[in-house]
Design a protein around this nucleic acid. Structure first.
Lengths: 141, 141
DNA sequence: TCTTGATCCTCTAGTTGCTAGAGCATGTAG
DNA sequence: CTACATGCTCTAGCAACTAGAGGATCAAGA
């Protein structure tokens, strides 16, 4: 059988603070782990990976409800294909939009770094880049 | 002179709720706008664009402090190149990491959609994709 | 002009997603 | 067998909103 670890170790391995791990359990993102005889939580590798997923997804700006859905996708053994598809597609669109916006922001910040290297920071369009309407990043003036 | 609009219009145009706009003003992300004779806020186009930037940046998972820095970059007329460069570079790294993670997540969700179309949802690796260590998205077995 | 409904104001309080601390139990190293 | 780290639960605080009360103002119609 695989090794299980206490919450502090999980915290160190995932970079998620101990109370936050307990919080994720409380709100149902993470299944309640087994307990030792002395009532301490003991986590397996799957729990650690799930926590890492939660952390990264949060850093990427997904809200807890969206993460719950993505985790549910992942938990589905092989059933309810239609539901899974609907959820997956909507998240795909969301992800594409995030990538598009980040790519635009990236190139603008990169330009600032490049120009900064030559001693002058030209006028900055960071705001314009992310400040535009819609998701299509249409050509600017 | 350019048209200015009341807060409700700004809210509709940006998708940010009225109290949230006032909150952004309170915490210094948005400069206090001009007021009408009857003390109502009136916003110009620049304010609207700045709010759209804030919204998108928040959706992308940047915290308020990071947004404040990015906005400061944008507000710099042409001074303090070194500071700007340091800030820009650190955000560049952060942005690259976000893009890498999102791209990985995207391809996994895409795979689920593709396989779902053929009637079966294969085992899902969404968690594995974002659950990995570090930022390098190293090759999985 | 008067009124009625939408919109604005300020201020306070609630929600979400954590995060820190009190007070006590347990585990482990010397 | 201390002693100090780590765990437990529970309560309270913080960041970033969000909603509502109570009151002023504006804009359109009778």
């Amino acid at each position: 059988m695989s090794r299980t670890v206490p919450i502090g170790t999980v915290s160190r391995e995932t970079g998620i603070k101990v109370p936050t791990i307990r919080y994720y359990e409380e709100v149902g993102l993470l299944p309640s782990p087994a307990r030792t005889d002395s009532n301490r939580r003991s986590y397996d590798a799957a729990a650690v990976q799930r926590l890492r997923f939660i952390r990264h997804a949060r850093e990427l700006g997904f809200e807890v409800e969206a993460i719950r859905q993505l985790l549910t996708l992942s938990d589905q053994p092989d059933r309810s294909c239609a539901d899974v598809d609907v959820i997956a597609r909507s998240h795909l669109a969301e992800i594409d939009e995030k990538i598009a916006r980040l790519t635009a922001l990236r190139s603008e910040v990169q330009r600032m770094v490049d120009e900064g290297e030559h001693g002058r920071v030209a006028e900055c369009r960071v705001i314009e880049v992310l400040g535009d309407h819609g998701s299509c990043l249409h050509d600017r003036h």
